[in-house]
């Protein structure tokens, strides 16, 4: 099963990479500043968070005297969340959006979610790079712990792919899924310690936030960027196993339903 996916992905690798490149180019094709816009968005976000929370509101992270701590905490969470929600939303709609293509051309359909995830990943890399520059300038470079990022990103991709393919297939049959996801993501954002640290919420609610599968992942990013420490790998183990299982289930569902899926598009 896995070999056949890898084989067809390999055969269509240039198509997948080409599509990712094209999607990125298409976004900025007719704008004068072109690819610079990819940088301006995240740059504006980092600036706003730093100025508003550190300078204007003087928000401090509990247990830290660093005026920039909250800004770094916020950025690392928001960036990782942005990658998650953007790619998940696009993966959920990818089969519906490419319905005509799926009906009329015979090509590996599994390349479609790969293209949207690859696309979001590219954006994520850019904002991570900018964030890295910001950390360098403010003299808060996390050091060697930054080497854990590829593992965190890989784990996040597995989670997104598993969830995205499952929801993408379900969305073809039950269009409510796409609508529901937009609402669920709103709640999910606030149930994840991104804007607030876990320690400030009442203890009886901490259990809810801790049971959120995204919590350990976001916390890992925050640990790396804010404290310059290696993430707590043990805490990430359940998520790793869960995401892998989800990916297997999602792929199984995709295989089982891909024939019927074409009929519904």
């Amino acid at each position: 099963m896995v070999t056949s996916v890898l084989k067809s992905t390999w055969a269509y690798r240039s198509f997948i990479l080409g599509s990712i490149k094209r999607d990125i180019q298409a976004r900025y094709k007719s704008s004068a500043l072109g690819a610079l816009w990819t940088i301006f968005g995240p740059l504006a976000m980092i600036t706003v968070y730093t100025v508003v929370f550190s300078e204007i509101m003087r928000a401090k992270l509990p247990g830290s005297e660093d005026p920039l701590a909250y800004s770094i905490y916020l950025c690392s969470g928001v960036l990782a969340w942005g990658f998650f929600s953007e790619s998940l939303t696009r993966a959920t709609n990818v089969f519906i959006e490419n319905g005509n293509l799926i009906q009329k051309l015979n090509f590996p359909r599994s390349s479609l979610p790969m293209i949207v995830i690859g696309n979001a990943l590219f954006n994520f890399f850019i904002v991570l790079a900018l964030f890295g520059i910001y950390l360098l300038i403010t003299d808060r470079w996390p050091g060697a712990a930054i080497l854990s990022l590829p593992i965190l990103v890989a784990l996040q991709i597995i989670l997104i792919a598993g969830l995205g393919i499952t929801l993408g297939v379900l969305n073809v049959f039950f269009r409510d899924v796409g609508q529901l996801l937009a609402i669920v993501l709103q709640f999910w954002f606030w149930l994840t310690p991104i804007v607030y640290p876990l320690s400030i919420i009442p203890e009886k609610f901490q259990g809810i936030v801790e049971s959120n599968p995204l919590t350990p992942l976001i916390q890992a990013y925050q640990t790396v960027f804010l404290n310059g420490q290696w993430p707590d790998w043990q805490q990430l183990a359940p998520l790793t196993i869960g995401s892998t299982l989800l990916l297997i289930i999602g792929y199984g569902l995709f295989k089982a339903k891909s024939g019927e899926m074409v009929d519904e598009l």
Partner: peptide
């Protein structure tokens, strides 16, 4: 199928061909 209006004919030939 697979043509994108913003790209040149040549670029589209490459994408459509790969598809």
């Amino acid at each position: 199928m697979g043509f994108h209006p913003e790209f040149t004919g040549r670029q589209n030939v490459f994408m459509a061909g790969q598809l």
